[in-house]
């Protein structure tokens, strides 16, 4: 966990900004990457992955592509593909470099031609002890099972930041979605660390699918705050698989950043993340 590592004083972590094969990026994702890097005094490395499979495809005799602007299909020679991918990559990296400069964040860029998961796993294993992978493409442009692939294939990642198509801001309350009492303290600490960079308030959202469990969680949370300053929190009862209530609560609070655990009710390991991601107006940091 980021909070655990940060508390230990280890600053060797990194934010890996994954630039996919599409030219479509979310400015909120890029801002989120800079924010996390700034909060943890770390660097951002953009990783532009030239998907090897595309080059394999381009070498096929019948390789052709179609774009929404053009009528009909056209051939895609390898040299054209290479040039186009190179142009997209260069443009993206220029954009990110400018953002990093403005945010006073150390920035590095890398271009690799490989399988995306393998490239990410390699990048995250090179530097530790923590890496946060920020996906530049807004959710929806990439396959939904990619998130599962990331958590399962990229062992060096501590958390993944995603943005939905509605994401437009990183200013606002930092909302920590807690479903297990053990995670409350470390996630809250992570939120407070990020809060130092944004200046927004930190709020707690307790989520459960059973009223009694939620009540117990709430009681434990109050005990935790009884010694010191209480963080405002709200309780949301959700049905398993239905994140609409969580999404609505987050929208109502105009969250600027959300932290949630992977594999819970809010971000299930199985099932669709789309309803939540598409409603979010801010980045979502999914912690392992």
């Amino acid at each position: 966990m980021i909070a655990h590592v940060a508390a230990a004083g280890e600053g060797r972590g990194r934010v890996v900004l994954w630039l996919g094969s599409s030219a479509r990026t979310s400015s909120a994702a890029i801002d989120a990457a800079m924010l996390v890097a700034h909060a943890y005094d770390s660097e951002v490395e953009s990783l532009f992955v030239e998907d090897q499979q595309l080059f394999e495809f381009a070498s096929l005799p019948f390789a052709r592509i179609i774009s929404s602007d053009e009528e009909g299909w056209r051939a895609l020679p390898s040299v054209d593909l290479e040039r186009e991918i190179h142009l997209v990559g260069a443009a993206l990296q220029r954009q990110i470099a400018t953002t990093a400069r403005e945010a006073s964040v150390t920035y590095r860029s890398r271009v690799v031609r490989d399988d995306p998961m393998r490239a990410l796993a390699r990048a995250c294993s090179e530097t530790g002890p923590w890496n946060v992978v920020t996906i530049a493409e807004p959710f929806g442009a990439w396959k939904e099972d990619r998130l599962r692939d990331l958590f399962s294939s990229v062992h060096g990642t501590t958390g993944i930041v995603i943005t939905g198509p509605m994401a437009s801001r990183i200013q606002g309350p930092i909302i920590v979605v807690v479903e297990e009492i053990e995670r409350l303290s470390p996630m809250l600490k992570a939120a407070e660390r990020i809060n130092e960079a944004t200046g927004g308030p930190v709020k707690l959202l307790l989520v459960g699918d059973r009223q009694d469990e939620l009540a117990w969680l709430e009681g434990e949370a109050r005990l935790l705050f009884s010694d010191g300053e209480e963080t405002p929190f709200e309780v949301v009862l959700v049905e398993r698989g239905d994140t609409a209530a969580v999404a609505e609560t987050l929208r109502r609070h105009r969250a600027g950043f959300v932290l949630a655990q992977y594999g819970g009710l809010t971000v299930p390991a199985e099932g669709s993340l789309r309803p939540l991601a598409c409603a979010l107006e801010c980045p979502l940091l999914i912690v392992r």
Binding site: S22, L54, S59, A63, R64, S67, E70, D80, I85, W142
Partner: peptide
């Protein structure tokens, strides 16, 4: 169905990977 910077492409795959020219 693949997404590329230039548009959408359709490719044969085998075990989740695009088939190389040699294999094809």
């Amino acid at each position: 169905v693949l997404s590329t910077p230039a548009g959408i492409a359709v490719a044969p795959i085998l075990e989740g990977k695009v088939v190389s020219t040699a294999v094809f």
